[in-house]
């Protein structure tokens, strides 16, 4: 924990490593539970009591209930899990990326059709500093 990691200097990226996985275990188990219809029903009926079955931190709980997608990743969530929570809200992978990048669905989709986010200028945090 707290160690410098080789990938710390990649911008806009949370690598889901063992530290993040340990931090996000309950949060991710909550998200993945929504893969199944009966659980989605229960969550819809009473979000607060449903989520309380998963003993996560207050920050994680708040981020999950308020759909703070980047914050969820920072707090130990992984995209393959948080995407299930997104799907519950009717948000698909591409729309979710539109939200996380702050571009919005239309501009994000256009960026992808135009070839995606280029690698140049997006390798190192230092390249994002005057963004």
């Amino acid at each position: 924990m707290g160690q410098q990691k080789l990938y710390d200097d990649i911008p806009g990226t949370i690598v889901f490593d063992s530290d993040q996985a340990a931090k996000g275990y309950q949060l991710n188990q909550f998200c993945i539970s929504l893969r199944l219809a009966p659980n989605r029903e229960a969550f819809k009926e009473n979000p607060e009591s449903y989520i309380d079955q998963f003993p996560m931190t207050p920050e994680q709980r708040e981020a999950a209930l308020n759909q703070q997608w980047n914050r969820l990743l920072e707090l130990g969530g992984n995209i393959y899990y948080t995407s299930k929570l997104a799907a519950y809200h009717g948000i698909n992978f591409q729309e979710l990326a539109g939200l996380m990048t702050g571009k919005g669905s239309t501009a994000y989709r256009e960026m992808m059709v135009a070839g995606g986010r280029p690698i140049d200028g997006n390798r190192y945090k230092s390249e994002w500093e005057d963004k």
Binding site: T13, Y108, I119
Partner: peptide
């Protein structure tokens, strides 16, 4: 994921 999503 996160702000660099869409990288190609």
């Amino acid at each position: 994921q996160h702000e660099r999503a869409g990288l190609i």
